[in-house]
Design a protein around this nucleic acid. Structure first.
Length: 426
DNA sequence: TCTGGGGTCCTAGGACCC
DNA sequence: TCTGGGGTCCTAGGACCC
């Protein structure tokens, strides 16, 4: 008997690294590592690179020598490439899925398989895996279980047990319990480093141990989130498929700079860019922000790091890039220390309220309205059609000293005519 | 003069994810 | 030269008020 609910998780293997191998068949059997923004830390590794001893989330400069010695192929983050690969993979999944899918992250999607027979689930899972390989040449694991957390657990099996060929279906309690006994608690979705050490201290070492934790203990240790995790490990669903993700309660845009910034103009340019990106996301979910905060910081490894933050109300709310950018720049004026070497800045939008049912503030002439919707609508459409950044505020035109370093970026094979891969015949 | 419970709002920091 | 990601949510605890 198949459980009442069955949720599939499709997870692209070593996604960033796999993407780099698609157009480079010559490196498919070599170690590959992909770096974060500004080539700061390693964020993705294929199996060969893991075997060579490269560590995820460790700084690149500390591992560079090891990587060179081991012949690791290193790449900067290529968002143009992986973003397009991701979009195409999700299209492939959508075409085969029985219902609308939940795109959970750039390389993961949940698919509701409720109602299918046991054989139906298995054959669809294999079909999804094969289609993504055939269309996009990205290896993918598919795990299916009654809850999202168990589906996540199933991914562990698709990675570690070669004989199941990347497909794991957990239908019965004894199946997920067998797996849970063999998976360390830190592998469980929602259990991070801090929680792991707390759990280990009371003798909880495996996912199965965690599933036996009482509600009271779970609540005391990590609040409602851990209670949910424990229930989900026992096959009781607490997290539904979200085909239309709920609007965000907070929107952040921040970046580390490609080089240290020491003058106010460059900082303004960066902060203006961050506010506009945040405003774009805000319009994407059809909300207004009633509060904006910005922060600027020097390197946290400095002997006396600076970390300044400041927030302000937006009377009447706004989703207008021009207004939010101006507010952010005004805030920045009072926070800037001449002589500091700024390494990073960010903008956060808070107190977000949906367009529908908002309270119009008739005392605030420049809040919502006044042609703002029209201008922002044009801006968004132009940028959608011609690419992000095609139409920006004058404020953002400058030296771009904050732009990130991507010294080892591969070509944008899928999104630029000049970068199309060439195949030489004969 | 000092003490108390209980509610709301806000924020900094913790913790997690990819 | 000198390097160190980005984004979201939750909650404990403080401030304030009745």
């Amino acid at each position: 008997m198949v459980p009442a609910k069955m949720i599939a998780l499709c997870d692209q293997r070593s996604f960033y690294a796999s993407c780099e191998a698609v157009f480079r068949p010559d490196i498919r059997d070599k170690p590959i590592a992909v770096l974060s923004n500004n080539d700061g830390v390693v964020v993705a590794l294929n199996e060969y690179a893991k075997a060579a001893g490269v560590k995820k989330f460790e700084p690149y400069f500390k591992q560079r020598e090891l990587m060179e010695r081991q012949g690791v192929q290193v790449f900067s983050s290529n968002y143009e490439l992986i973003g397009e690969q991701s979009r195409r993979i999700m299209e492939t999944l959508r075409a085969l899925a029985p219902a609308e899918i939940e795109v959970y992250s750039i390389d993961e999607a949940f698919i509701d398989m409720t109602g299918l027979s046991s054989d139906g689930i298995k054959s669809l899972s294999r079909q999804l895996r094969d289609a993504v390989w055939q269309h996009q040449r990205i290896p993918m694991g598919v795990s299916v279980a009654p809850t999202k957390t168990l589906a996540k657990l199933g991914q562990y099996a698709t990675k570690k047990i070669p004989t199941i060929n990347g497909v794991c279906v957990l239908e019965r309690p004894h199946q997920w319990q067998w797996l849970a006994e063999r998976v360390a608690v830190e592998e469980v979705w929602g259990v991070g480093r801090r929680l792991t050490s707390k759990l280990n201290a009371i003798g909880v070492r495996s996912a199965a141990d965690l599933s036996r934790l009482s509600e009271r203990e779970a609540k005391a240790m990590q609040g409602v989130t851990l209670v949910r995790t424990v229930q989900e490990l026992n096959g009781v669903g607490c997290l539904d498929i979200e085909t239309a993700p709920p609007p965000k309660q907070q929107i952040i845009c921040s970046r580390s700079f490609g080089q240290k910034i020491t003058n106010l103009d460059d900082l303004k340019e960066a902060v203006s860019f961050f506010s506009c990106r945040a405003a774009e996301k805000l319009r994407g979910q059809e909300s207004y922000a009633y509060r904006l905060s910005i922060w600027v910081q020097t390197s946290r490894f400095d002997s006396e790091p600076i970390n300044a933050e400041s927030a302000i109300e937006i009377p009447g709310g706004s989703d207008d890039s021009r207004r939010l950018s101006q507010v952010a720049i005004d805030l920045l004026q009072g926070m800037y220390y001449p002589g500091a070497r700024y390494a990073k800045a960010g903008v956060t939008l808070n107190d977000l309220r949906p367009h529908l049912g908002y309270q119009l503030d008739w005392l605030e002439a420049d809040s919502v309205g006044g042609g703002s919707e029209v201008v922002m609508g044009v801006m968004d459409r132009v940028n959608k059609r011609f690419g992000r950044g095609a139409l920006t505020l004058g404020r953002q035109v400058g030296r771009h000293n904050y732009a990130m370093q991507r010294a080892l970026k591969s070509p944008s094979y899928l999104t630029r005519f000049t970068d199309l891969p060439l195949i030489r015949m004969g």
